[in-house]
């Protein structure tokens, strides 16, 4: 199994953390992992992204031409990465934010009301956990409980009071796909 994914959105939406939590979870499950963030000019106000690779075998390039899965939290990310998904691959996007959805028919498309779900939980900052829930429910890259274990590692201790909210957001994100 190799999952080559990219998490993309505006800076501040938590896309880098999404990838990092997934990478941590992969490590906990003894898989090979690689997390490669964008850190260049696009980080300053534009789009941010993190390529995240989870594999049972040695990972080759951290730079990927075509992804298994694209997770897009804003319109520029859909526009930029829709064409870079493997045939039969997956795109998960925040349908609350993205008004022009992907059009490809040779990929699996999941538009989820991510921001709406986060707002209903009274904290837009858990958007990334909602979408990560949808990602895990779609891709099953790691076990859901491993994500929650990884969250504790990634989230600084002073924010650990937010773990129950993040857990709820993650579970609601999973439910968006299951229902």
């Amino acid at each position: 199994m190799t999952e080559e994914a990219i998490f993309a959105g505006f800076g501040g939406q938590g896309v880098l953390s999404m990838g990092m939590i997934l990478a941590y979870a992969g490590m906990i499950e003894n898989k090979e992992v690689c997390w490669m963030p964008s850190y260049g000019p696009e980080m300053r106000g534009g789009t941010a992204n993190a390529t995240t690779i989870i594999s049972d075998t040695l990972i080759s390039s951290p730079i990927i031409s075509k992804y298994d899965t694209v997770v897009a939290l804003n319109q520029p990310s859909v526009d930029k990465f829709e064409g870079k998904i493997k045939t039969g691959g997956t795109i998960i996007y925040d349908a609350t934010n993205i008004l022009t959805p992907p059009t490809r028919t040779d990929i699996k498309v999941f538009g989820i009301p991510g921001s709406e779900t986060a707002v209903n939980l009274k904290n837009i900052r858990v958007l990334n956990m909602v979408v990560l829930g949808a990602f895990i429910a779609t891709r099953h890259t790691v076990k859901p409980e491993t994500i929650l274990e990884a969250l504790k590692k990634v989230l600084p201790e002073r924010y650990h009071n937010l773990i129950p909210l993040n857990k709820k957001a993650f579970e609601e994100g999973m439910a968006l796909i299951k229902n």
């Binding site: 990478a23 992992v33 490669m36 963030p37 951290p62 730079i63």
Partner: peptide, 10 residues
């Protein structure tokens, strides 16, 4: 290089 510095691995 910048990628080796910025990327996370096990």
């Amino acid at each position: 290089d910048g990628a080796m510095g910025q990327m996370m691995e096990k």
